[in-house]
Write a protein that binds this DNA or RNA. Sequence first.
DNA 1: CTTGAAAGTTCTCAAAAAGTTCACTATCCT
DNA 2: AGGATAGTGAACTTTTTGAGAACTTTCAAG
Lengths: 198, 198
Amino acid sequence: MLTIQQKRVLDFIRAFIHRHGHSPSLREIGEGIDIQSRGAVHRHVQTLIGRGVLKRTRSGWRTLELVETDEASSSLPLLGKIAAGRPIEAIPGHDEVNIAEMLLGEERYVLQIEGDSMIDAGILDGDLVVIQHTDTANDGEIVVALIDNQEATLKRLFHLSGRRIKLVAENHKLSPLIYPADRVRIQGVLTGQLRSYR
Amino acid sequence: MLTIQQKRVLDFIRAFIHRHGHSPSLREIGEGIDIQSRGAVHRHVQTLIGRGVLKRTRSGWRTLELVETDEASSSLPLLGKIAAGRPIEAIPGHDEVNIAEMLLGEERYVLQIEGDSMIDAGILDGDLVVIQHTDTANDGEIVVALIDNQEATLKRLFHLSGRRIKLVAENHKLSPLIYPADRVRIQGVLTGQLRSYR
DNA sequence: CTTGAAAGTTCTCAAAAAGTTCACTATCCT
DNA sequence: AGGATAGTGAACTTTTTGAGAACTTTCAAG
């Protein structure tokens, strides 16, 4: 396990290589994470090499390389934020996302979406959604609702006065539906969504 | 069983690691659960280590780790398809999705999306996208493109005649941009997208 | 091939941050 | 009363870190 500074160094190197195509110098690392002493940076780098997450391909300048750690873990490096018109911007303190940890949980299951009824919420036809099993939900949450014990739908939920429930499809072409509360049973709440391309 | 305080300590550590990616210091634990004395926190931590729910990977700072009781796999049950107006329909032959397997891969990394430029493709502000590192892409694919070695953007790519490249933001309010091919460098291709609610 | 700047390496010193131990005290429960 | 649980604060040890200086190696221009 790395210390915080070691992580910062590794993080910086990863981002630098990704951006410039080559390894940074010790001085550049120092500037990037605000350390004056090249010696201190060197010690961090040596430690990282010792831990096996970095290597120097040969002696020389700018020869640091990341060791591809293809652990069978559920993590991917998180390089930063992307927005039109600016370079990728690092997110301090976060260098990894654990996908499994984000989406997995007790009493959860996956459904595949058919149709465009949630398209305005960024949920497209064919997407997978992760549902947390529960029979209660707060206003504004997206739920799996069973109507008359027959139709299951994924809709945004609102409680109205007079024990009525409004179910809103996130598609501007579709109108909200209002039911008496006893015709609607909540089966779960949306906790995640994922999509796979090509 | 654990006492109430021990449980609070454990819960705090779990949440902290989940949030920061590394273990908290004793002082931080103390601040988190409102104990002034590092000594008292230390005693709790030692007890938890004794009970086997925590461990210290090595001597040093911030080296606490949770002992994982139930091995978290990366799968969730796939119950079926959901569409408005019909019961949940089972998908024959599929009863499980392995989330890690879907999204992980060699040379992939994650970016967080900032802004609404891909909203029509179902990619919202704050979403995470999984990028496969590559310097080539096919027409119609969504890519991370670096323009003039400066601006990084996520756009849909099309090759035009005359060594020009069209980058299309998936937002009906934004117009496509056309560049000569030598100003655009492809850094990766979109392979996945995920979002976490509440 | 020489030369000098840039980069990497090695070292000592000091300080800050974190972990450990301990004596004393307080509260709750039986 | 007595034990379990808990908190405080001080003293102490260990680990991590940065600064800076001196040294060696690399690389390319001339």
